[in-house]
Design a protein around this nucleic acid. Structure first.
Length: 280
DNA sequence: TGCCAGGCTTCAC
DNA sequence: GTGAAGCATGGC
C-alpha cells in the first residue's frame, strides 16, 4: 500500500494504491448494507458516526476523501488495507475449479472491519432475510433513530446507539418482523444492565467471542461467525448460510476443505458468497 | 402468487 | 444430540 495527497477539482483527497480491492465487488458482497452508490465505482460510506466518499479511479487506485490522520485511524483499518489479499488468492488450491472460477469474479473482495455494535444489529436483522430487505430495514432504523449529519453537502444518518434502540417500541412498524424483539433485548442488555459488554467481547479470543455471542438471544452459529468476521476481524470465522451450504453440498460433496485455509477461511468464504451473489 | 431469504428458538424424541 | 415446526416480512 502506498499513499499520497492529491489535489483533484480543488479538493485535497487521499490517493491510495491498494491491490485486490474492488469497490463494486465489496458493495455487493453482503457484508455492508449502508454504502450509497453515487456514481460508477463511487460510493458514500457512513460508518463510526462519520462519512466519506471513495472512488476507484482505476484498478488498484482508491481516491478517498479524508485526511491522512483519518485514513490511518479509520479507513485503512476499515478496508484492511495493510493486508495483502493477493497471498490469500495465491494460496487457493489450483485444482479447486470452483474457487479458481470464483476468484475471477471476486478477486477484489476484502473483509471490512466494521463497528461491532452496528455489525451485531445488522446481522441479527439478516437472519432468514434477503439483502435488499436487510438494507431497507437498516435504512429505516437509521432514518428514524440515527442522527442526521452533513458531510460536505452529503446528508447521512448515523447508526443509532444501544441506548436508543433499547427504548421499548423504538423500532415498531419498521418491518423487522420477529427480529425486533431480539434487537430490543440485545440493546437493553448492552445499554441498561451491562449483561453484554462490547469492550469485553472486543478483547476476547475468537473462540470466547463466538461462544459469548452465541449465548445472546437471537444469535446462533452463523450470525456469531458473521459478527466475528466483519465486526471483530477474525478471519478464521467461516459463516455458513444457505448459499455457502448449497455450494458445499453441490461442489464439495458436503465437506469444504477449510483446513487448507487455516486462519483466513472467512476470506475464502466471502469469495464464495460474492460469486454466488453475482451468478444467482 | 407462491417461493425464498447471510437462521433462530422451541419442542419432541 | 438431532430433526422438524414456526416464525414476520416483503422482494422477486
Amino acid at each position: 500500500m502506498r499513499k499520497c495527497i492529491k489535489t483533484i477539482e480543488g479538493k485535497e483527497i487521499m490517493r491510495i494504491k491498494i491491490n485486490n480491492l474492488d469497490l463494486k465487488q465489496i458493495a455487493e458482497s453482503g457484508q455492508c448494507f449502508r454504502w450509497v452508490e453515487l456514481g460508477p465505482n463511487q460510493y458514500g460510506i457512513p460508518v463510526f458516526g462519520t462519512f466519506t466518499i471513495v472512488e476507484q479511479t482505476q484498478i488498484g487506485i482508491l481516491d478517498i476523501d479524508c485526511t491522512s490522520e483519518e485514513w490511518k485511524g479509520i479507513w485503512a483499518p476499515y478496508f484492511d488495507a495493510e493486508i495483502n489479499y493477493g497471498l490469500y488468492i495465491q494460496s487457493i488450491n489450483p485444482k479447486d475449479n470452483y474457487l479458481q472460477e470464483a476468484i475471477n469474479t471476486s478477486f477484489g473482495v476484502r473483509i471490512l472491519k466494521q463497528d461491532l455494535w452496528e455489525t451485531m444489529v445488522t446481522f441479527v436483522i439478516s437472519q432468514n432475510n434477503n439483502i435488499s430487505r436487510i438494507k431497507g430495514c437498516i435504512e429505516k432504523i437509521c432514518q428514524r433513530l440515527g442522527i442526521l449529519r452533513n458531510y460536505k453537502g452529503h446528508a447521512f444518518y448515523t447508526f443509532p446507539d444501544a441506548l436508543t434502540l433499547a427504548e421499548p417500541g423504538a423500532m415498531e412498524g419498521l418491518g423487522l418482523g420477529y427480529r425486533e424483539k431480539y434487537i430490543t433485548l440485545l440493546a437493553q442488555n448492552v445499554a441498561w444492565n451491562g449483561l453484554i459488554n462490547l469492550a469485553e467481547i472486543e478483547s476476547m479470543s475468537y473462540g470466547d467471542a463466538r461462544a459469548t455471542l452465541k449465548s445472546i438471544y437471537g444469535i446462533g452459529d452463523k450470525i456469531a461467525d458473521c459478527i466475528c468476521l466483519f465486526g471483530l476481524g477474525f478471519k478464521e470465522a467461516f459463516p455458513i448460510d444457505r448459499w455457502i451450504n448449497r455450494v458445499i453440498e453441490e461442489q464439495y460433496d458436503g465437506k469444504f476443505p477449510i483446513e487448507n485455509y487455516a486462519g483466513y477461511a472467512g476470506v475464502i468464504q466471502q469469495y464464495i458468497f460474492h460469486n454466488e451473489m453475482v451468478h444467482k
